[in-house]
Design a protein around this nucleic acid. Structure first.
Lengths: 373, 373
DNA sequence: CTTTAGCACTCTCTACTAGAGAGTGCTAAG
DNA sequence: CTTAGCACTCTCTAGTAGAGAGTGCTAAAG
């Protein structure tokens, strides 16, 4: 047929996608004409739809069932047709207020970000904790007595990263003993990375600048172990939320999708595995960490077969040259991309602001409008 | 007809339940005879099945489809027919070893407990963090410098409960300033509950034993807020895991359950809500906290309609008179109760041991067989 | 060359029917 | 009390027909 993506065809493509995203039903030529009051006949639309199909932006499930967008169709929509709106101000305000309620607690920010993303997009969300690209660099150790024989070790790393770990002691230790041991070790190992610490410890006795007591040696071992597991964990950790929200999408309701019903469950299992373990996301997270702006991955565009039915909208958040994480939304390819994108953009910039505040100077403990712009 | 649960009927009931739990298919008289080599004819079994049905332990979906246990049937099985085996030693060892790997970290224990419960029972698990029945009682505050204007506040409460919170400071403070402020507040507020602290602060100036600086006042506000949210949160918090495992149960695979397929999704949504928010569990958690041993709640026995299709196996864990939580398994009423019960029993006693170690004297930091019996 | 009306064609969905299969419940004999 | 035999019930499957939806094509109109 005739080549070229004329204006009118683009307009029709846009309508098809909007309609399909809204209703989840294949869209027919007549529906378009009626619902959007087009000044042409269904037959004309049909011709255009056929052209769009030939161009690869739409498909047919079978002869005679409306058109459905392909991945390429969504891609074109996201790239060229979509209006880039920001999240409504009222909604922004509500969200900001919720974050304000839990100020000072990174874990809660992460959880809240996930919840908000899920709720406003009606899809599942994922958030990775912010992390420095650098290896962990030890800064100081504090030991806080909790019991006679139990203490809390608080490991502080450069970049404001903190890890706590309970330690059972080999004997009753006074607070003073704890303080001294912590100070000695903080001094001894300050500013070193995990491998640096291991090197220091491996030096022959005559090169050691400090003789460690058995107690202190035990603490260092704990420290090393904690750093190891911490680095491993934070590399992979993904928080997710919004399963229930995503489950309310018609794709997961067998009766609505006229379809195997088996596939609905299979689809769900896949989503669960992606959300739980990140399997299927492949190298996406590092990629997003290395790029700016909101990234949209539609269907099987970028990764394994497992993701073929899902789209992902991700963005980096964090503080330049210090710390960064990824957050975003995952759901069926039939997704309200404009809304997802604007939500992800807003939440990521909000999280970035919050983190920046933690890292900067102007904020204060004494309440107030810390989070207002 | 004839009344009474004869030996033989009990034996048959047991077989029906075992068979149904294994296969998820209604069990027929002939199947029983063939598979278990009964020395009676199918007709005899049929008579017994009819009697068991009249007694309320079995049902019929329709004339001519095998028997299915009722809630009462499961209940009788759990109470009287089931062998109470312990978890195989090899499995115990594996589990113990996994816990040993993450010694010292309560959060990880909780997560691990959930994962192990889910994996060994092939159902979903839930774990509430251990908590004291008493209100939080403040013990001490530590402030650890992280940045120029950022510190980590570590709040230590009686019972070894610890909460960390990031604090942004109103000005640059030296480590010494932080230390002194923390020490003063620790002293001032030591051993008080939340309401006690609020009272202390509300006293008129002339009764105050300590003049607080603005900085210290800000810290106290943070402290109060943290205690409030902490108490609220820990009251409701439920960790869950094993959705994927539970999803592999035939109840969630519409093609296997000859059934609406709609219901499978609805069922799943319910499970999700229960696991996420604890809704539907009602007063179950407090009840279990107040009782010893493993509690089994079958179907709608104890609570709302939402739980009608699920059974729950729960147990308390913790340290007598100090701290306690609840952990357990949730899944379709067609559940391998013996296995669930023995797993829950084992994990709860393991968690109790681990917590007891944290609270007691004999353990040591220096590696070794801390977790072996 | 584009648009449109008309119409045949394709494919799904629903309802209906019939027959096979599974398993029970009943009856009557051992 | 047990059991063989058999009728009965209910599900499941397959097949058929008709309605409905929507397209693709053709030919005429603008």
């Amino acid at each position: 047929m005739s080549a070229g993506l004329t204006e009118r065809r683009q307009a029709i493509l846009k309508l098809v996608i909007q309609e399909f995203v809204e209703t989840a039903c294949p869209v027919a030529s007549e529906t378009l004409v009626r619902k959007y009051r087009l000044n042409v006949s269904p037959a004309t639309v049909r011709n255009e739809l056929a052209a769009l199909e030939e161009l690869g932006y739409l498909t047919h499930l079978h002869t005679s069932a409306g058109r459905v967008p392909t991945d390429a169709g969504y891609r074109f929509f996201v790239e060229n047709l979509m209006e880039r709106t920001a999240l409504p101000l009222a909604e922004q305000r509500t969200i900001r207020h919720q974050f304000y309620q839990v100020r000072g607690e990174l874990d809660q920010w992460i959880q809240l970000a996930g919840a908000v993303l899920a709720r406003t997009t009606q899809n599942a969300s994922l958030v990775t904790p912010p992390r420095s690209a650098e290896p962990l660099r030890f800064r100081s150790l504090e030991l806080i007595a909790i019991h006679d024989t139990m203490a809390l070790a608080v490991l502080v790393f450069h970049g404001g990263i903190v890890k706590q770990q309970t330690v059972t002691l080999d004997a009753v230790r006074s607070a003073e003993e704890l303080r001294r041991a912590a100070a000695r070790l903080s001094d001894y190992l300050a500013d070193q990375t995990l491998s640096g610490i291991e090197e220091t410890l491996a030096r022959p006795p005559e090169q050691q600048t400090l003789m460690l007591s058995d107690f202190e040696r035990g603490l260092v071992e704990m420290l090393v172990r904690a750093m190891q597991t911490f680095e491993e964990q934070s590399r992979e950790q993904i928080h997710s939320d919004g399963l229930i929200e995503m489950l309310s999408q018609p794709e997961f309701i067998p009766a609505l999708v006229r379809e195997d019903a088996e596939r609905a469950v299979e689809r769900l299992r896949r989503a669960l595995e992606i959300l739980k373990s990140g399997r299927g996301l492949g190298t996406l997270i590092p990629q997003v960490l290395a790029s700016d702006g909101v990234q949209v991955i539609i269907g099987g565009e970028n990764s394994a077969d497992e993701m073929r039915e899902y789209s992902v909208v991700l963005a980096r958040y964090g503080v330049e040259n210090a710390i960064a994480g990824v957050l975003g939304v995952i759901g069926p390819t039939r997704m309200a991309y404009p809304r997802s994108i604007s939500t992800v953009r807003y939440i990521s910039s909000l999280m970035s602001d919050l983190l920046a505040e933690l890292y900067n100077v102007e904020s204060r403990i004494s309440e107030g409008e810390a989070l207002e712009e």
